[in-house]
């Protein structure tokens, strides 16, 4: 071997690593650029206010106390609608995951009703439930219900059958098999469903508050639109996305706690 040459490295890459600073930097850069462009008058002030104006609008909402009222009203509707829709969805979804008859009966109904945009049903809900809180809660509840059903029963299917055979081989009663094997085993799928339904609830609260709501983030955004208060409108949108981030953080914490075993 006369010539000794080092072997060239050709591995590495294709391995996403968490980068903490990059997202923050991108965020700051975009906002900064936007502020600069507004300040230089490159952006039409009439149709796109600067970030600072949006922050000022948010500040105004905090100081006059309307922020709490709007967020409180929306959170109330989201929480109630989500809890009701989730409870009903889990009950039906788990039943469909466990009983063949329930699945045979439920699947066509769910498949037929799931794709209907719940916003299109809003007028119907208003006829049924009036223009008060019930129609708003129902809109969110229905929107949450169907994805929860589907998440729950597919999650049941994804529980390894050998675990159920094992439980049977130890003589566990059927109820114990449901609570000790099926439900915990379906938890990852159910929690993944929660992420989707939480976003759906946030989307639907805006639609639900279009009709007859005095307070609420959706009502606020809508009236800001009607009043051409673009800074207020964007402040409302900012609130929504902050709410979305908060919900996602909470769900992340729940997932980490409940699914520690994964």
């Amino acid at each position: 071997m006369a010539d000794a040459a080092p072997v060239t490295f050709r591995g590495g890459g294709f391995h996403p690593r968490p980068q903490r600073l990059v997202p923050v930097a991108v965020f700051v850069a975009v906002i900064g650029l936007w502020q600069f462009a507004s300040w230089r008058g490159w952006l039409p002030a009439l149709f796109l206010p600067s970030p600072w104006e949006i922050v000022t609008a948010l500040g105004g909402m905090i100081s006059d106390g309307s922020l709490g009222r709007h967020v409180g009203a929306s959170l109330m509707r989201i929480a109630l609608g989500w809890v009701l829709g989730t409870a009903a969805g889990l009950a039906i979804g788990l039943a469909m995951g466990i009983f063949s008859v329930a699945r045979a009966a439920g699947l066509p109904v769910v498949s037929a009703l799931f794709p209907i945009p719940k916003i299109a049903l809003l007028p119907l809900f208003i006829l049924w439930f009036g223009i008060g809180e019930p129609s708003k809660v129902a809109t969110i509840g229905f929107g949450v219900f169907f994805p929860t059903v589907i998440a729950a029963y597919t999650a049941c299917d994804s529980v390894p059958r050998n675990l159920i055979r094992m439980a049977q081989s130890f003589g566990l009663p059927p109820a114990a098999i449901v609570w000790k094997i099926l439900v915990p085993g379906a938890m990852p799928g159910i929690l993944a469903g929660f992420r989707i339904t939480a976003s759906i609830a946030l989307i639907l609260v805006v639609a639900a508050e279009m009709i007859g709501a005095q307070y609420g983030i959706g009502a606020f955004i809508l009236s800001a639109g009607n009043l051409n208060q673009i800074d207020h409108l964007l402040a409302g949108v900012t609130l929504l996305s902050l709410l979305g981030l908060a919900v996602s953080a909470v769900l992340g914490a729940v997932e980490r706690a409940v699914l520690r075993w994964r």
Binding site: L163, R165, K180, I181, G185
Partner: peptide, 8 residues
């Protein structure tokens, strides 16, 4: 395949 419950 052991059939252990991963969450226990």
């Amino acid at each position: 395949d052991f059939a252990l419950l991963p969450w226990r």
